[in-house]
């Protein structure tokens, strides 16, 4: 007979195997924090379902309680209980030790990819007309200044891209420039990595500060070329544009 404890354990193990071993066959492996989150959700689901009524509570928690209280146990049952009572604190201790022990790995980080721009870069409009000539000029400038890293196909895979961690932004991804307004790109290109606020970890980005090399006009035109080349359109609050 399969009780709720066994099916719960099978379900948890199944979720873990799926997230840890099966999913990475198709895509990049999940970070541990995410696996932990999903496992917690699955566990709370099992607990909620198991404690829904008096009878389900008894069949889920009853054996656990009886096992732990040790009433009327003998032989293997008694030994197993003793083993659990000894091993569980050891497990907690080991877990605490490993999380506190010094290691040569850098701590997990939480870098904000798209931090809020400073006030003076919010709501600037591109002063140059969106016409063929300007876009073509922008694409030419893009090819000269940006494509070595961001790629000739606007996909973040330029010849120099491999040298960078974090990698250069992929403009063809709908999660990057399509989510942003032109003024945001203007800020990022003009001020570069060093102009990022602290939550975005300015020391990590290798983006140059283009204001020292390019006039504003070039930057605005590069932005036009970028959107056109990546087949994206900037985020706006107007429907007609």
């Amino acid at each position: 007979m399969r009780g709720p404890i066994t099916s719960g354990a099978i379900l948890l193990a199944g979720v873990f195997v799926f997230l840890k071993f099966i999913l990475p066959l198709f895509t990049a492996p999940l970070p541990a924090s995410l696996i932990y989150l999903y496992m917690t959700l699955a566990f709370s689901g099992i607990m909620l379902y198991g404690t829904m009524s008096a009878s389900s509570l008894e069949s889920l928690m009853g054996p656990v309680f009886r096992f732990l209280s040790g009433e009327g146990q003998s032989g293997t049952g008694k030994l197993a209980r003793l083993a659990v009572l000894v091993l569980f604190p050891l497990l907690v201790g080991w877990q605490t030790y490993t999380s506190l022990a010094p290691s040569d790995l850098p701590p997990g980080e939480n870098r904000t990819i798209h931090p809020a721009p400073p006030g003076e870069f919010v709501g600037l409009a591109n002063p140059y007309q969106n016409n063929e000539a300007n876009i073509n000029m922008g694409k030419g400038l893009y090819a000269a200044y940006c494509s070595p890293c961001h790629g000739a196909n606007y996909d973040g895979k330029g010849p120099a891209a491999k040298g960078f961690n974090p990698p250069p932004a992929n403009f063809a991804d709908p999660g990057t420039i399509a989510q942003l307004q032109e003024s945001y790109l203007f800020w990022r290109i003009k001020k570069g990595g060093v102009g990022l606020p602290v939550e975005a970890m300015p020391w990590k980005s290798a983006m140059p500060r283009w204001e020292v090399e390019l006039p504003d006009e070039f930057i605005w035109k590069i932005i036009m070329g970028e959107y056109d080349g990546a087949h994206q359109s900037p985020r706006t609050w107007e429907e007609d544009d």
Partner: peptide, 20 residues
Amino acid sequence: QKIFFSKGQCALCHSIGPSH
């Protein structure tokens, strides 16, 4: 530019380019 967007308070009402 900095005054426009901070002390001058211009951007509280006006925009540069279409804005909702």
